[in-house]
Design a protein around this nucleic acid. Structure first.
Length: 514
RNA sequence: GGCUGGGUAGCUCAGCUGGUUAGAGCACGGCACUCAUAAUGCCGGGGUCGGCGGUUCAAGUCCGCCCCCAGCUACCA
């Protein structure tokens, strides 16, 4: 386990949009995993980036009077800005407009052609000249005048066929089912796995993988009128990063990816199309794809038209990055949809962070500071209560590791906070302030047990709240090198000088004026 | 319509292969304590476990029917 590679990816975000809570959520989950695995000694590669091709971008750029590349240079910046705001730690930020990505896409294409999985056919659909786009049957309706129109735009549509290359996806259904069977962890959570299985069991159609209706994208080798359609372009970024087609590239060691984190809307691309492409090209599919849910805002579906889009930058400004990170991963079972409520966020901030965790640190560290000469107190003989608490804290790393292996962030945090609650109970039961008068030796041991418990609890919280936990570990004088999990069993050494304690998780008080 | 997953305390949810008085967190009420960020701890109220019927010594936990909710049922990133 230690030293082994861990490659985790976010989807590449389409730059047609500005970053919202959904983007932040996906990347946050990846960031926590990446940070955890690094602390756990893994050789981590964490990739995020932007998808910058396609007709929408081409048109948006034209509308802005800009060249497509200049346009995407500009709008992809907001996604790069989010990295700092949310404290993400990617190893690279990939863009589909990079030259190496063109090379990778074209190499993959040629591999698929050589394998006989791509053929030239015709893509047919209901085309709206006005919208310059195709609609599927279900997106259109026939009016009273007998004419068929796009339901969403009201524009008249006509049946059009254009030449297009197809990928023989229909031939891959059985092999995909066999792959799912042999790799039960390939799709998470289980509910999504069921959906994908039933979808593939229902049979697959060949997939149109090129378009001639726009030019902003990767040209098809040997037939540059054709531009690769979204699937082949976007998904390929994951292997572009590793150097494909150069499997001697040092980064190739990270493939196959350990985890593609995605929103539930793009699970099919990742769980059906992508492994089929890869298997057809003789490349190993990723080990796992996990689809998380969506957020609603105070019970309402989020949409631009409703004007209730949640801006992660605003959240961080108001509540702080650690609280936002904690809330998003603690409030909702990861994989489920969740409802974003201010009062729930404030409840978590004040209840879980300020009252339970922050106050535990503060009450313990301030007694230590006042009674133990601003040093780690001496550790005497341990009672049953002492070892019971310490043992629970010692067990956390194994528990959190297992939960994160399943992307069960909420369970990992719940387990940690149970120990925090135990520690608060222990403080009350041991009453070190009373021992100060009767048995200062025992008091010191109690305080040592508490400080050591805080240290053990805090190490696995680091990936979730890197800033606050860093400050707590500073107050315990834990050396940076001992904050990785190799330091988990390095107990606090009595006599180590400690800095003056300071609150780390302030209570959130609603501003007076709204 | 079909498929899948759900309907358990005010809210969010745990309850594995059926077995003592159905649990947790939050919210609410009372008490204790005072080291601490008016924090913490203890106690308590509150549930026809969607409905009806069945199997069983025993069902939230199995079977049948019904009601309700969510997701999926492909070319939009």
């Amino acid at each position: 386990m230690s030293g082994s590679t861990y490659y985790v990816t976010t989807p590449i975000y389409y730059v047609n949009d500005v970053p919202h809570i959904g983007h932040a959520y996906t990347s946050l989950a990846c960031d926590v995993l990446a940070r955890f695995m690094r602390l756990d000694g893994r050789d981590v590669h964490f990739l995020t980036g932007t998808d910058e091709h396609g007709q929408k971008i081409e048109k948006a750029a034209a509308a802005a009077g800009m060249a497509p590349q200049a346009f995407t240079d500009k709008v992809s910046q907001s996604f790069r800005d989010l990295l700092g705001v949310m404290d993400y730690s990617p190893d690279n930020f990939i863009r589909t407009t990079e030259k190496r990505h063109y090379a990778a896409c074209q190499a993959l294409w040629e591999k698929l052609v050589a394998a006989g999985d791509i053929y030239l056919g015709a893509y047919a659909g209901w085309y709206s000249v006005r919208d310059e786009t195709y609609f599927v049957e279900g997106e259109t309706e026939v009016g009273q005048d007998g004419k068929r129109r796009a339901t969403s735009t009201g524009a008249e549509v006509e049946w059009v066929e254009e030449p297009s290359y197809f990928f023989k996806l229909s031939a891959w259904a059985d092999r995909l089912l066999e792959f799912y069977e042999k790799n039960p962890r390939f799709i998470g959570p289980d509910s999504r796995r069921n959906e994908i299985l039933s979808f593939v069991r229902g049979g697959l159609q060949d997939l149109s993988v090129s378009r001639t209706s726009f030019s902003w994208g990767v040209p098809v080798p040997g037939d540059p009128k054709h531009i690769m359609y979204v699937w082949l372009d976007a998904l390929t970024n994951y292997i572009t990063e590793c150097g494909y087609p150069d499997t001697n590239n040092p980064l190739w060691k990270y493939w196959p990816a350990d985890l593609h984190m995605v929103g539930k809307d793009i699970i099919r691309f990742h769980c059906v199309f992508w492994p089929a492409f890869l298997m057809a090209a003789g490349i190993a599919p990723p080990k796992r794809v996990f689809a998380h849910g969506w957020w609603t805002n105070e019970g309402q579906k989020i949409s631009k038209s409703l004007g209730n889009v949640i801006d992660p930058v605003d959240l961080v400004k108001t509540y702080g990055v650690d609280a936002v990170r904690y809330f998003l991963l603690r409030e909702v079972p990861f994989g489920n949809d969740g409802d974003f409520q201010k009062k729930a966020l404030v409840g978590r901030m004040n209840g879980d962070l300020a009252n339970a965790y922050g106050n535990l640190c503060q009450r313990v560290l301030s007694i230590v500071a006042k009674n133990c000469g601003e040093k780690v107190p001496p550790k005497g003989a341990l009672t049953e209560a002492d070892t019971a608490l310490l043992d629970r804290a010692k067990g956390l790393l194994t528990i959190v590791r297992a939960e994160l292996d399943d992307q069960a962030f909420h369970k990992a945090l719940t387990s940690i906070w149970e120990v925090i609650a135990d520690a608060n109970r222990y403080v009350d039961a041991q009453a070190p302030w009373a021992l100060a008068k009767t048995d200062p030796v025992r008091r010191d041991t109690v305080l040592w047990v508490l400080a050591e418990t805080i240290r053990r609890v805090t190490l696995p919280v680091q990936p979730f709240m890197p800033d606050a936990t860093g400050r707590i570990l500073d107050q315990l004088a834990v050396a940076p090198a001992d904050r990785a999990f190799t330091g988990f069993d390095k107990e606090l050494v009595p006599g180590t000088p400690l800095p003056k304690p300071q609150g780390v998780f302030p209570r959130y008080v609603e501003p007076k004026a709204e």
